[in-house]
Design a protein around this nucleic acid. Structure first.
Length: 394
DNA sequence: TACATACAC
DNA sequence: TATGGTGTATGTA
């Protein structure tokens, strides 16, 4: 009944390497998992993980028995879909920006010797993040350093410099604010922005307000005549003219160009790269920001068809809010992609709570929040004494 | 209400 | 030697 094979399989789903992240494609999973397993076996953590795994398996068993007993019930899913479809909002331009391997990138910037080595930030007990070189060995955020060392003996582990990351984060947030003063920070290294208003204004901006010099810090190139009032923080001392020194880049007025410009300014200011996603809602923007990481961006056009094309083959696990447990429960129902999620709504509405299946339905339709709300989270953020460690800012 | 689970960073 | 800390949301007893 217990079945060692079964519990071992199940354990792997919790303990095994999570390669669902950028920079970890094409690894030798079996080899890596064996090392992780060997290092973990017998520990209290291991025993606890096995226990939790069995609980999830029981939950799935219960769900499957329930499913087998289902009678053909009619539900009004079609009607709800239609209502949601009518309310679909495509008019906002939502951006999710995410710094690439943030802590590791800061440490590499400040210590060039680390640049070509596999390195991670954290301790022997826990890593906060790793650089892309280390990821080739399966070393990633949320992994204990001692296990990472087994995977990659040459790994350099740098302790956290939290104050430094906070300071850099402030610099990055200054750039965010230029595109959306109400942006929503999710952690030190990532945020949601609604750049709809910015884009409206930007339409009327002259090129000079969209021009940036490669070597200079964050200020548009100064030309003699045009609205200098708008550049309060530009240095009046040395107005750099196009062609005088570094190359001047002119950014366009489209959403993609605005975001390219924002990433350019972040890099000029901090020497760190960011990735971004542009989409009509937060759920999609978040997925998009991961698509061309590191140092890239991806956008979904504000059209229903573009959204549905994007959603179709998207693995459900990529969606924020779908974690490993939900992934496994859905997998037991042969649901792996968002399209399959949509096809199975009838069953899902019977097996899951109302809030859960409503959420699933929204995902399957490519819907998400179109207003970023800061007021709700702001008090919580200000109370916080220490920022939680981002364990997956890759 | 209190506690447990899932999820995010 | 060693597998985080904190907040939110949701479900259940």
């Amino acid at each position: 009944m217990d079945g060692t094979a079964d519990s071992r399989e199940g354990m792997l789903s919790r303990m095994a390497l999570n390669d669902n992240k950028a920079g970890m494609e094409g690894l030798d999973r079996d080899k890596i998992n064996n090392i992780i397993l060997e290092a973990s076996k017998g520990s209290r953590f291991y025993v606890n993980e096995v226990k939790k795994e069995q609980q999830v398996n029981e939950r799935i068993g219960k769900m499957m028995r329930h499913k087998a007993k289902l009678t053909e019930q009619q539900i009004q899913k079609a009607q709800l879909s239609a209502e949601l479809e009518m309310g679909r909002e495509l008019g906002r331009v939502i951006v999710h920006v995410d710094m690439d391997a943030f802590y590791a990138a800061v440490e590499m910037r400040d210590c060039p010797e680390l640049k070509d080595k596999p390195m991670a930030v954290g301790s022997m007990s826990m890593l906060s993040t790793s650089n892309y070189h280390a990821r080739r060995y399966g070393v990633r955020a949320a992994m204990p350093g001692f296990i990472a060392k087994k995977l990659c003996p040459n790994l350099v582990i740098v302790p956290l410099n939290f104050d430094k990351y906070t300071a850099v984060s402030e610099q990055v947030r200054e750039v965010f604010a230029a595109y959306d003063p109400h942006f929503l920070p999710m952690s030190l290294d990532e945020a949601y922005l609604d750049i709809t208003e910015h884009l409206h204004e930007r339409q009327h901006w002259p090129e000079s307000m969209r021009s940036y010099k490669s070597c200079d810090n964050e200020v548009p190139v100064e030309t003699d005549n045009l609205s200098p009032v708008l550049f309060e923080d530009s240095p009046s001392s040395s107005p750099s003219l196009p062609g005088s020194d570094g190359k001047v880049e002119v950014f366009g007025t489209s959403p993609e160009e605005a975001v390219r410009e924002m990433r350019f300014r972040i890099e000029q200011k901090t020497s760190l790269t960011a990735s971004a996603g542009i989409a009509p809602n937060m759920m999609l923007a978040k997925v998009c920001s991961d698509k061309n990481k590191p140092n890239g961006q991806y956008s979904i056009l504000p059209e229903r068809q573009a959204v549905m094309d994007f959603i179709r083959d998207l693995p459900v696990r990529k969606v924020s809010g779908i974690g490993k447990v939900t992934e496994k429960m859905l997998a037991a129902l042969d649901i792996f992609t968002c399209a399959q999620l949509g096809q199975q709504m009838r069953v899902l509405s019977l097996l899951f709570s109302e809030t859960s299946w409503h959420h699933f339905l929204q995902i399957s339709l490519g819907l998400g929040s179109t207003r970023i709300e800061r007021c709700v989270t702001l008090p919580a953020l200000s109370i916080r004494v220490t920022e939680p460690l981002p364990l997956s800012e890759m």
